[in-house]
Design a protein around this nucleic acid. Sequence first.
DNA 1: GTCTATACACAGATAGAC
DNA 2: GTCTATCTGTGTATAGAC
Lengths: 203, 203
Amino acid sequence: MAKLPFRQQVLKAREDAIVASVNRLLAEKGFDLMTVDEVAADVGIAKASLYKHFTSKEELAAAAMVRVLERALAFLDGLRSDVQASPLEQLKAVARWAMQVQLAGEMPSLPSQNSSLRAVLVTHKVYLDRLMEVSDRLGAWITAAQQRGEIDPALPGELVLYTLFARACDPVLGLLKLGGQYNDERIIELLLATCFDGLRSRA
Amino acid sequence: MAKLPFRQQVLKAREDAIVASVNRLLAEKGFDLMTVDEVAADVGIAKASLYKHFTSKEELAAAAMVRVLERALAFLDGLRSDVQASPLEQLKAVARWAMQVQLAGEMPSLPSQNSSLRAVLVTHKVYLDRLMEVSDRLGAWITAAQQRGEIDPALPGELVLYTLFARACDPVLGLLKLGGQYNDERIIELLLATCFDGLRSRA
DNA sequence: GTCTATACACAGATAGAC
DNA sequence: GTCTATCTGTGTATAGAC
């Protein structure tokens, strides 16, 4: 009971390193353009060794998605202790966090189109579990915010949820960053404004 | 002067058919997952014949992008005659048109990440010309709308422009469509609302 | 479980006859 | 310009030694 757990710990550490690399490469190039050779080179092990830990490229990507969802859940846990904030403030905080992750180059982006990856994800229990949990927690805040009239009650809850997810990997962020005219903090404030307040003036 | 123009006309018609196929496949699967074999099969000609018209897969995609930009310009031309509409109304009309194109499965989607396609596009004169022209026309309306106070003057013009482009291929549209709960018209109205008015209530 | 070497499939692009 | 047949590179995945 002393040696085996240690070995497993080492194994876990290596797998964490793999998933972290996958996460970064996925954010940088997307699933289709990321190659398993690159991942292996980035981690510093042979490609065949990768396949001892993960059975396919799709499983690698799924692990990275689980990782970011668990980071999100950890962030949500931290927010819950902040009881005096309104639901709207909580949702804004989550959106801000997601944009920060994206600016840091750590937001893995999935192909919105159909692909081999989608097929794996829709049957990937752990991924679906985490996704559900994040959705449920956000959904509760959305409902509360709509009851308070902080978020437009005329909008379907799922639309609000999808919109928040979509803004977490909005290409507009990358375009503004590329322009080089604004710093990261300003970019995030601008995108939060367009997301929650829209393009029109608030008279 | 009678036979040659006719042959060129036939040639042009065939190329139009090719580009239309590419456009549809690009909207359906994206650049990376679209194969040249598929395009050839869809058009009904041999792959080698395709390469007589277009020198590479990237050039095929570029032609499809030019096509959709020219459709946009044609739509903008039609709007200009409508002189009594406000700049904000004009911008909304363009956004609505783009969403309709996306719902029809005719909005080619480029990979936002770096790829071989980006490298070709940034040096593709015709594509850049069309893109500039669309941007200029929208930019004029954006400026006018901000001067009138219809669009928030605090937002940088480029942010507004990028946001409109991004909403034209927003994945949220596809998600709502997939849910099956709303018809196309309602989906468009909902997305226009979140784009221009934001998620928050307008008290 | 890690490595080197390799099998296998597929996609982009081309050769050469007609 | 269109076809059939083929070349070439590359990427996923695996075999087999250690």
